[in-house]
Computed example of a mutant assay.
Amino acid sequence: MIYVAAGLVLGVIAGLNLNLVYSPEYAVYISLTVLAMLNSIFNMLAENLNGGLTTVKSIVFLAGDLAFALFLGYIGEQLGLPIYLAAIFAFGNNIYKNLKIMLNYLLEKNNKKK
């Protein structure tokens, strides 16, 4: 857990101090990539609480989410339609669902201790 917290802190510090500039044309792809990664992280956390997380599952979660999001972003750009919003809604719903699963697990664990 210490490594995760240290990596998160170092990532935030590096992100704030580095002067990276990207083209506004890639804003949709970057936002979809970040959201897909967040969705994968929450999927992995929920699976880990259930005891069913494996390395293969985590790679499949990440690759599948990234491929789905970037494919919708690309198709939307080609058609001139905001189809990427479907990925945003799907990932947002999935993140909230996984948060609910994790909170229920923690609440049940806390109730068993009493």
Rank of each mutant, 00 (worst) to 15 (best):
I2Q: 02
A69E: 10
Y96A: 14
N19T: 11
G76Q: 04
F42H: 09
N93A: 15
S58Y: 00
F42Q: 05
N39L: 08
A90N: 09
A27R: 07
F71I: 14
Y96M: 14
L66C: 13
V56H: 05
N17I: 02
L45F: 12
G52C: 02
Y84H: 04
S40W: 04
F42A: 05
Y29K: 03
V12M: 13
N17V: 06
G92P: 14
A63I: 12
K109Y: 15
V9L: 14
A87P: 02
M1S: 05
A36C: 12
G64V: 05
G64F: 08
G52T: 09
K57C: 01
T54L: 04
V4H: 07
I75C: 08
Y84K: 07
N111K: 04
Y3G: 03
K100R: 05
L38M: 15
K114R: 11
Y96C: 11
I13G: 08
F89T: 13
T55R: 01
A5F: 13
L70H: 09
M37V: 12
I13R: 10
N93M: 14
A67G: 14
L45C: 10
N19S: 12
L106S: 12
G92I: 12
E108W: 09
L53I: 05
G80D: 01
Y74C: 02
S58A: 05
I41R: 07
S23P: 06
M44I: 06
G7A: 14
N50R: 15
L53S: 06
P82N: 06
L53A: 02
N98Q: 09
L49C: 12
L10P: 07
F61V: 09
I2G: 00
L70F: 04
L18H: 08
N93R: 07
V56D: 08
L81R: 13
L35P: 04
L107S: 15
L10K: 11
T54K: 10
I88E: 07
G11Q: 10
M102C: 05
K113Y: 06
V21L: 01
A27E: 07
G51A: 00
A27N: 09
L45M: 09
G80W: 08
L35N: 10
I30P: 01
I95E: 06
F91S: 04
G92N: 11
L85Y: 10
V60P: 00
A86Q: 13
N39E: 09
I13Y: 12
A46K: 08
I2T: 03
T54Q: 08
Q78P: 00
A63S: 11
I95Q: 02
D65M: 14
K113T: 05
G64S: 10
N43V: 10
L70T: 10
G76C: 04
E47R: 15
K113G: 02
E47F: 11
N98W: 02
V9F: 14
G92A: 08
L20I: 07
L62C: 02
L20P: 00
L18K: 10
M1C: 01
L70W: 15
